[in-house]
Every structure is written in C-alpha cells, then in structure tokens.
C-alpha cells in the first residue's frame, strides 16, 4: 500500500519534471531518427553518391556530402545506430559487472569486499582509454560488438563502487535482517530485497554509463581505433579531420556528428538530474 503510494508520487513528480521531459524528448528524437532515418534516405553510407565531391547541405543531400561525395545524413543516421548499439551493450555490460561485484562486495563484506575493492581501485586508477587503445591497436579487425565489450569491461568500477556503498548501507536494515533470519539465500535477498530498494540508483548508474560509453566510443573511433567495418559518429569526425574538412570549411561534415553526441549525452545528464530530483525530495524545487 505504502509502496504503491510512493510509486505514484514518483510518477507524479517524474511526469512534471522539466529536466526529465527535455532529456527524454531529445533521446526519443534520436532513437526514432536512428530507427526510421534509413527509410528517409536512398543512399548507403559509403556510396559515392555525388560525383562532384563535397557539396553543402541541400534538399537533395540534407547534410551535404563528404570530400568523396558520400551523403553525410545517411552516415549520421547509420552512425547513430552504431552509437546506440555500443552505448546499450557497453553500459549494459558495465552495469551488470558493476552490480555483480558491488552486490557481492557490499553484501558479503569481509575479505571478498577487500579483494573486490582493491580490484575496483586498480581499474579505476588505470586510464580506461589507454587500455582500450592498446587492446584495440592489436586487433586487425574491429567490430562494433567487440568495441562495446571492451568499453563495458573497462567501465564497471564506477558502478561497482556506487552499488557497493548503497548495498552496504542497505544490508543492515530491518527488512534485510528479517529476510536473512527467515533463512533466505543471499542471492534471493540481494535480488528481492536489496536491488528493488536501490532501483533508482541502478537506473541512474546505467544512464551515466550509457553517456560514458558514447563518449568513450567516440574517442576510440576518433583516434583511429573504431570499428573497421561500420560507420559511427566518431568515425565521421575522424574522416572529416583526415580529409581536410576544416581547411576547406566543410562544416556540415563535422558539425552534425559531434552535435548529435553532445545532445544525446547532454540529454542523458539532464535526465539523470531530473531523476535525482524525483527520487530525492530534498532537491525538488518548491
């Protein structure tokens, strides 16, 4: 009864939170663009559709064409797909690993906690990008999936730390003690008692990981270690720099992909702040 009322209250505030609305709106726009964008274009991302090379945006080429006459709109739309794929896979893996280690460390405590803590701290200190670089550099063929897995496997420490701290504070609560006394297994307690009570936290962790994965992928792509068989927003920017878009003033080549990333990640942050306000009444504006 009480939980239901609380849920309604969250929903009430969630539906009225401007930051959440704006964030969700922007994300929805890009998701729809990624999903249905390819229907709006007759070209393939790597096709040399315009024989005269680069042209500025027009009704024929909405975002202009590249140095080689490829359609930028098509590339951006396909790049969005890649970006979302990497973000979902990468942040999914990172959040799952983070949950597993965070729950274990926080719930079990003791020596296991120590070990996981040291491991987390090590991975936290190592610059993620450096590790990604060295692994990616040795892979001759790089796929989107491979990139996502790499990003996910290096990004979990943030999540693990946050979840550990939350679990730690929850595990001594009455309802957890009750469950433990009634002889439920650790696994069951974690997933039926602890996890639901930090759902808001998990959602927010996932959102932050999602944005982080997008930025990480863009960096990796831009430095020349992106997927070898696909197009991505980071790759479009890399190609534009490699082929002198700056010197020739072909702004339509490098503005859209970066703008898309900025808007998506910015929208995610906005959603996160909005959710924070929904779940923490103290932050709500009166």
């Amino acid at each position: 009864m009480k939980a239901l009322k609380q849920k309604n209250e969250f929903l009430y505030f969630a539906l009225r939170n401007r930051k959440l609305q704006i964030g969700l709106g922007v994300i929805l726009f890009f998701v729809l663009l990624a999903a249905f964008g390819p229907l709006l274009t007759d070209y393939e991302p790597f096709d040399y559709v315009n024989p005269t090379g680069p042209v500025a945006p027009s009704s024929k080429y909405w975002l202009g064409t590249t140095f080689f006459g490829q359609d930028v709109f098509t590339q951006v739309v396909m790049g969005l797909r890649a970006t979302f794929l990497i973000a979902i896979l990468g942040s999914g893996i990172a959040t799952l690993v983070g949950m597993l280690l965070g729950f274990l460390a926080g719930y079990r405590g003791g020596i296991l906690d120590e070990i996981i803590n040291v491991l987390t701290n090590i991975v936290l200190v190592i610059p993620t990008m450096a590790v990604l670089l060295i692994i990616a550099a040795y892979l001759q063929v790089r796929s989107l999936t491979m990139e996502s897995i790499l990003i996910g496997l290096t990004a979990w420490p943030w999540a693990a730390r946050a979840i550990r701290a939350q679990t730690f504070s929850l595990r001594t609560r009455d309802f957890v003690d009750m469950a433990r006394m009634s002889g439920e297994s650790s696994f069951k307690i974690i997933f039926s008692e602890i996890a639901p009570n930090m759902m808001s936290y998990l959602v927010m962790t996932f959102i932050l990981q999602f944005g982080g994965a997008i930025l990480n992928a863009a960096t990796l792509d831009f430095i020349g270690l992106g997927p070898t068989n696909a197009i991505s927003l980071g790759l479009i920017m890399q190609y534009s720099m490699m082929w002198g878009a700056l010197q020739f003033g072909m702004w339509w080549w490098f503005v859209p992909p970066g703008l898309a990333i900025t808007l998506i990640v910015g929208a995610l942050y906005s959603m996160n702040v909005g959710l924070d306000e929904v779940f923490n009444p103290k932050l709500r504006e009166m």
Binding site: G211, L215, A218, T219, F222, G234, M237, S240, M241, L246, Q247, G249, W251, F254, V255, P257, G258, L259, I261, T262, L263, I264, V265, G266, L268, Y269, S270, V273
Partner: peptide, 22 residues
Amino acid sequence: GYILTATPYMWLGILLAWFFGI
C-alpha cells in the same frame, strides 16, 4: 555546464579550430 561536459573533447576542439582558426 551540462552541455559543456557532454561535449566530446575533439568536437569542441574542431569547432574552436574552425571558428577561431578558419
């Protein structure tokens, strides 16, 4: 502030180079 942190480093660099440099 949120837009700035959401900006990929290279993109802001490219924009600045384009605007101030070109």
